[in-house]
Amino acid sequence: MTTPGRDRLRELLDAVLDEDNRTLSDMAGDAYASPFHFSRQVSGGAGESPVALRRRVVLERAAWQLRQGASVTDTAFAAGYESVEGFSRAFARAYGRSPGSLSAGAGARDAHWLPAPNGIHFHPPSSLWVSDEPARRGDEVTALLVHHGVEDTRALLELVKGLPEREYRQVRAPGLSVLPWDGTEETLAALLDTLVWTTEVWVASLEGGEQPVRGADDAASLVDRHDAVAPRWLAAVREIARRGAWGDRLVDALCEPPESFVLGSVVAHVLTFSAHRRLMARHWLREAGVEVDTGDPIDWLRRRDR
């Protein structure tokens, strides 16, 4: 029974963010609840799983600490990561840039905030801030799809690294063209190369850069290319969301002749055809005798929240 005047959600959040509670079991034990009921209560009250909430707020704190001049190494271990490399990967996935790229400086109150469904953010030096700005749920769904696309692409690229070359370059759909201007994508090599290349081209357009040079299409090179462009893609979409600029227009001088695109349609385009190519790659991997998951964002999110 709940005691009158008792803020149960506040108690749950305290358990989520306590420095000593690194796992879901730790959090639940501190709140005198089973992990199942604790997770359900936090998710219901905050709209975010306890593991995801803790990870996000800890990364927000890390971003603030880096802006205060803390070293990446000190920040990584303060955030509970066992290695600087693991922290750097998590930070780049969240912020679209490496932790070492943050320059020291106070910045705005919310400069370190990540998208959140509940307005709950880290507030320096050791508090929480609950923003009353209405959550833009469309932005949250877009952020989820963009993150899933980035991580799912990398998982597929890692998977094909172990594929024999003849399977990787075997023609599986003669004459297949997903989009007319992208040419044929008859093989896994061509399909995955175009998957990465599409992101490279659109990121260059959003950044106002030059036409990128298309790199090698072997699996190891594609992993390197993807790792280079993925943080920039995340950062570009995050900036569009931050400014609420989905309806703004981009005049893409990389097209011949230059074309005008609505930013929201650019993101939707990349997400649509990235998902199509990733599902097709899975079908072809199964044909090659490789076990691969379904690529379902539901399963991906469940794994992230554990």
Rank of each mutant, 00 (worst) to 15 (best):
L234M: 15
H226A: 09
G215Q: 12
A288H: 08
G264W: 07
L263N: 06
D139P: 02
W64N: 07
R22F: 08
L156Q: 06
R55V: 01
R97I: 06
S103V: 10
V130M: 05
D18W: 09
T75I: 13
F87K: 10
V141I: 11
L176D: 02
S126K: 14
A275D: 05
G215F: 08
S205G: 15
W284E: 01
A78N: 09
A52K: 08
E11M: 10
E82V: 13
R22H: 13
A78S: 13
L17G: 13
A15D: 06
D182Q: 14
V201W: 11
E239D: 14
V84Q: 14
V196A: 05
A173P: 00
A275T: 12
Q170C: 02
M280I: 10
L206V: 08
L102Q: 03
V203S: 07
P115L: 14
R282S: 03
E207T: 03
D26S: 03
G29N: 15
A104K: 11
L59R: 04
I240H: 03
A108Q: 14
V229P: 05
Q65L: 15
L254W: 07
D30E: 15
R55K: 14
Y95L: 09
L17V: 08
R306D: 07
L285E: 10
L17N: 12
R214W: 00
W197Y: 10
R243P: 06
G96A: 09
G44P: 04
S265P: 00
L12P: 00
L13K: 00
E167S: 12
C255H: 06
R238G: 15
H123V: 03
E19R: 15
A241S: 13
W300R: 00
L102H: 05
G175P: 02
S39M: 08
E158I: 04
D18M: 07
R169P: 04
V42Y: 03
A230C: 01
R6E: 14
D224C: 07
V270D: 00
P231V: 11
E186R: 08
I240S: 01
F261D: 03
L17Q: 12
R238D: 15
A106C: 09
R214H: 12
D227W: 01
V223E: 00
G149E: 09
R172H: 02
N21G: 02
L179M: 07
A235N: 02
S131V: 02
F38C: 11
D217R: 12
Q65G: 04
H269T: 05
L102M: 10
A268G: 11
P134E: 11
G80M: 13
P124W: 00
